[in-house]
């Protein structure tokens, strides 16, 4: 039989491909962020949408500019820069001036991402690193407005008008003062869940973030290991060590306030800066949870999600190096027996 007549194409594996690409996955992430963005517009006014668009455009622009200036292939199409831009807007107060957002975009895209080699090479989550850098302008970064307090449509879009906004305590500020009773009086539990509270643009609505997160898990963009272990460890710690005498309420307010949901579903799960194996991902999530609770309890900051994820980003290489999945069909290597301890005279 002459094989050449069979018209077979000779090629090495893989022979079956999915249509998944970076752009496809990042598109799904963008879709998953729409509910939270919609609620932010409802809660804070159109300025929230303007911030998000400006920040996303800024990130895409800096990515394009860097790639063009250095004559590298253009990677704007994979949408990762747009996701970073939206996340940067999400982790800032709605009153943030546009120029600070653009500096954050520059820091995230050029310094954190492109200088280390571009998409897939960043060692920190670009949006969170940018937030850490943007705390240079601590006043602007911690000016909070209350829920549903936005002036009519167009007046909020321009800087200057936001100066009249009254500084408003966020749930995290009250929790940091151990003032659970005051917080319960200010926001009841349904408000906390739905997100009718003060805070960063994208973090307020735990419900919308849960919907987005569930969408990502159902679409198999992310796995449940990191969000579950992260939120679970925060829940366990705050339930076991409550401040006040209502552990359940303390736990719920700790889970629903602050950036925990946003961080757990959209930031800690970033492929590039999280461990590869499931076991490693659980360790990563628990580490994030521990550091978050430690910062909330003992730190001078109200909220620890940003730094917790950044610190654990830096631990990923260590986790990946030490947590290796066992290879199929290969017997486990037995550890060499430990040398017996020498008897010490007189203990």
């Amino acid at each position: 039989m002459n094989y050449k007549e069979l018209n077979l194409i000779g090629s090495s594996s893989p022979h079956l491909r999915t249509k998944d690409s970076a752009a496809h996955i990042m598109g799904e992430v963008l879709i998953a962020m729409v509910p939270a963005l919609g609620f932010a517009v409802y809660n804070f006014g159109w300025r929230a949408l303007a911030n998000t668009l400006v920040s996303a455009a800024g990130c895409v622009f800096f990515e394009w500019l860097y790639r063009v200036l250095l004559r590298k292939n253009c990677t704007v199409g994979d949408l990762s820069a747009a996701v970073t831009g939206v996340l940067i807007a999400f982790v800032c107060p709605v009153t943030i001036p546009y120029w600070i957002l653009l500096i954050g975009d520059f820091f995230a895209i050029v310094v954190v991402k492109q200088l280390f080699g571009g998409v897939g090479k960043n060692f920190l989550n670009p949006a969170l690193a940018a937030r850490a850098f943007m705390l240079s302008w601590a006043g602007e970064m911690t000016t909070w407005v209350g829920p549903r307090s936005a002036p009519p449509l167009w007046t909020t879009l321009f800087p200057g008008t936001v100066a009249d906004a009254v500084t408003y305590p966020t749930p995290m500020a009250l929790l940091h003062e151990n003032n659970l009773a005051g917080l319960q009086q200010m926001y009841d539990l349904p408000k906390m869940l739905v997100g009718l509270i003060g805070g960063c643009v994208g973090e307020v609505s735990a419900l919308m973030l849960l919907i987005g997160g569930a969408f990502l898990i159902l679409r198999k963009v992310i796995t449940w290991y990191i969000p579950a272990s992260y939120i679970g460890s925060v829940a366990l710690l705050t339930f076991l060590f409550p401040r006040g005498n209502d552990p359940l309420m303390w736990m719920l307010y700790n889970l629903l306030g602050g950036g925990l949901m946003l961080g757990a579903f959209f930031m800690a799960t970033d492929y590039v800066t999280s461990p590869v194996s499931h076991k490693g991902q659980v360790i990563f999530g628990v580490g994030c949870g521990l550091i978050t609770v430690f910062i909330r309890y003992f730190g001078s900051y109200n909220e620890g999600v940003c730094y917790a994820i950044l610190v654990m980003n830096l631990m990923v290489w260590l986790i990946d190096k030490n947590v290796r999945p066992s290879r199929f069909g290969v017997p486990k290597v037995k550890k060499a027996p430990k040398a017996e301890k020498k008897e010490v005279d007189g203990k």
């Binding site: 120029w99 500096i103 310094v111 850490a132 850098f133 705390l135 240079s136 302008w137 601590a138």
Partner: peptide
């Protein structure tokens, strides 16, 4: 000074 990135004067800025 309102526009200055204070992070650059902190140790972070030194490393960067």
């Amino acid at each position: 000074a309102d526009y200055a990135a204070t992070m650059m004067a902190l140790p972070v800025g030194g490393f960067l």
